[in-house]
């Protein structure tokens, strides 16, 4: 066992990278669920975003175009869910699962010509003095811009939900859509926008995997991250900062367990391999002891005639 071979600074820096896709998808889904909609299609929207972003970044040579089109791709796919659940009034669980299956197949089809290609590199932040600082430099000032976007988005969602009128209306729709409707708010329109925001965030998260974290395209490359993001929203009690904590915890333990293995720590590998799931759930369950509950209208179908 040689723990000294683990460099804590590099560890923190790489756990932030590992956590970002989960965080982006979870923040998007949090907004969707706050509006009272349960979209289980996160995985499908992520993988679609991953290939849309990858394909356009390769074609144009610009990672920025890639990320923008990933967000658009994810949002467009979520429109399918919108049509099914908001206009055709289909069951949300079934529609969400269908969206995941569709997204996985559709992305495989889109991606056939992109296997084995390399995307353009996304530049990292390089601030002359700050990035060279010991410890804080690698941790805080030398990541890619999308990672900061993830954190900024968390802060923005938190502030909007807590302090603004828009956030209040969104929460009202999620808690009691009949009352919100009676007050004259356009329930369906608000939900459609929330779902599209969720789709865009999931798409960004997917593109983060295919453009920065891995970076390449392979079928099924999101490998369940969308489901982890979904679970995280629930365990984080629909609170943005807790979602951030959960994502960093999950990413952190994932990276940590690989590092411990590489350092030859004498803990059986089986325990290390399950530790990210276990630790994240335990911590968030303890945190959620304050009995904050799900949005009351979560998953319920709304129609103005009811």
């Amino acid at each position: 066992m040689d723990l000294s071979s683990i460099n804590p600074v590099l560890l923190v820096a790489s756990l932030m990278v590992a956590a970002t896709p989960i965080l982006l998808a979870a923040i998007g889904e949090l907004v969707v669920e706050k509006a009272g909609v349960l979209n289980l299609g996160v995985e499908g929207m992520m993988i679609t975003g991953a290939i849309c972003g990858f394909a356009l970044a390769v074609e144009t040579g610009s990672p920025l175009v890639g990320f923008v089109s990933a967000a658009i791709g994810g949002a467009l796919l979520s429109l399918l869910f919108v049509i099914l659940t908001q206009y055709a009034l289909a069951n949300q669980v079934a529609s969400g699962l269908a969206l995941t299956l569709f997204g996985l197949g559709f992305s495989a089809l889109l991606g056939q010509d992109y296997v084995g290609l390399k995307p353009p590199a996304t530049p990292r932040l390089d601030i002359p003095v700050l990035s060279d600082l010991p410890v804080v430099g690698p941790i805080l000032f030398s990541h890619d811009p999308v990672l900061y976007l993830g954190i900024a988005l968390t802060a923005a969602v938190w502030a909007v939900l807590k302090f603004t009128r828009v956030g209040l209306v969104l929460r009202a729709v999620g808690e009691n859509h009949d009352a919100a409707h009676a007050l004259g708010y356009k329930v369906v329109r608000i939900r459609v926008l929330a779902i599209m925001f969720g789709g865009a965030c999931a798409g960004l998260g997917g593109a983060y995997i295919s453009l920065i974290r891995v970076p390449q395209w392979t079928e099924g490359m999101t490998a369940g991250v969308g489901w982890i993001a979904l679970a995280l929203v629930v365990f984080a009690s629909w609170k943005p900062w807790r979602a951030l904590l959960g994502a960093y915890l999950f990413g952190g333990v994932t990276v940590m367990q690989l590092n411990l293995q590489a350092a030859g720590v004498a803990i059986p590998v089986e325990y290390l391999a399950m530790s990210p799931y276990l630790i994240t759930i335990v911590v968030l369950v303890i945190l959620s002891a304050d009995k904050s509950s799900a949005p009351a209208s979560l998953g319920r179908i709304f129609h103005a005639s009811n």
Binding site: N7, S14, Q216, T218, T254, A262, A273
Partner: peptide
């Protein structure tokens, strides 16, 4: 030799993380 068991045949993100962990430890 530093050996990391990832318990998958195919998971690009996990394989990338494992490679990064090994490289950071000097491989």
């Amino acid at each position: 030799f530093r050996i990391v068991w990832v318990y998958t045949w195919f998971d690009p993100a996990k394989e990338a993380d494992a490679a990064k962990a090994l490289i950071e430890q000097g491989a």
